[in-house]
Simulated scan of single mutants.
Amino acid sequence: MGAVMIAERLEKATPENWMFPPEKGWTVDLVEDLELPVDWELVDGMIVVRGRPVLWHNMMRAGIERRLNDCLQEPYAVLSEQCVLIDKYNPPVPDVVVFDKRGIDIMEAKHILVEKVVLMVEVVSPGSQQDDRVRKPALYASAGVPCYWRVERGEDGLPQVHEYWLNTDTGVYIPRPVRPCHTSKLETDQPFPVTIDLGSLVEL
């Protein structure tokens, strides 16, 4: 009986067994076909249910993706809600990711390898504050992602973008030395020149 149960636990994740991971946790390969009626993400081998994002969050994500596309330079590409493979137990799905598209077979690739990523963007929601402010930037920095933007909702409802650069000596993010928090307008030259009228992101 025990051997049968262990064998079952090592099978791919299903709607019936996803809450009971193998001893070392689920891996990307074991969860790639999993379909659940909720949004979820694999974190350290555990399947974690994510809250449903609100309209403001989705508008920020879509707007930032559009503006980054407007400013994009070769050899980069930008996508939203695309899985980034950090390791087999941690394939986060950032709100927006900018990556070097060279050498990627878009017909076959299931994930973006983290070594290709130059910018991760997370839009903070009430249920994601700890993740977006602490866990995810630590994860992205440890994986060597050069730039991280955290988008917060100001008291006036307008977005504020906190810009971080990777300190390669310490392996952690530091606030951009000049104007680390962008309000009204985002202007930066990392990972390439970008200008975004932040107020325009809330216009329908």
Score class of each variant (00 low, 15 high):
L139P: 02
V194F: 11
V145F: 09
R176I: 03
G144W: 05
Q129S: 00
L166R: 05
L186C: 14
Q129T: 09
V145R: 02
C147W: 03
S184A: 15
L166H: 06
Q130Y: 13
E163F: 04
P137T: 07
A143R: 05
L186V: 08
Y148Q: 01
G171T: 06
K185D: 11
P146I: 12
W149R: 03
D132Y: 05
Q129K: 11
H182R: 14
K185L: 14
R179N: 05
G127Y: 02
P137D: 00
L198V: 10
I196Q: 12
R153F: 05
H182M: 12
Q190V: 11
N167G: 04
D131Q: 15
R133Q: 14
P193C: 04
D197W: 12
G154C: 04
L201T: 14
D156F: 09
I174C: 01
D132E: 08
V194L: 09
V151Y: 09
L158M: 15
W165N: 06
Y148T: 02
E187T: 14
R153W: 05
A138P: 00
W149G: 11
F192C: 01
D132Q: 09
Q160F: 07
V194H: 01
A143W: 04
G154P: 12
K185W: 14
D189W: 01
N167E: 02
R133W: 12
T168V: 13
R153I: 08
P137W: 07
S184Y: 15
P180I: 03
R135L: 08
G154K: 07
H182A: 15
C147T: 09
A141I: 03
R176W: 00
G157Y: 09
P175H: 00
R153T: 15
L186P: 13
P177D: 02
H182S: 15
S142M: 09
Y164W: 12
L166N: 04
A143N: 06
W165Y: 11
Q190M: 08
G154S: 13
K185T: 14
G127K: 12
V145D: 02
L166C: 01
T188L: 08
P175W: 03
Q130I: 07
K136T: 10
Q129M: 04
E155W: 04
P177Q: 05
K136E: 07
T170P: 00
C181R: 15
L198K: 07
P191A: 03
D169W: 04
V161N: 06
T188M: 12
D169G: 04
R133N: 10
V134S: 00
G127S: 14
I174R: 11
P175M: 01
T168P: 02
Q130S: 09
Q160D: 10
R133E: 11
V145A: 03
P193K: 02
E163A: 09
Q160V: 07
N167D: 15
V172K: 06
P193S: 06
I174D: 03
K185C: 14
Y164C: 07
A141F: 03
P159A: 11
P191K: 05
V151G: 13
T183E: 15
Q190N: 10
L198T: 11
D169S: 11
A138K: 14
V145I: 14
C181D: 09
G199N: 15
G171I: 13
G154W: 07
V134G: 00
K185P: 00
P191H: 02
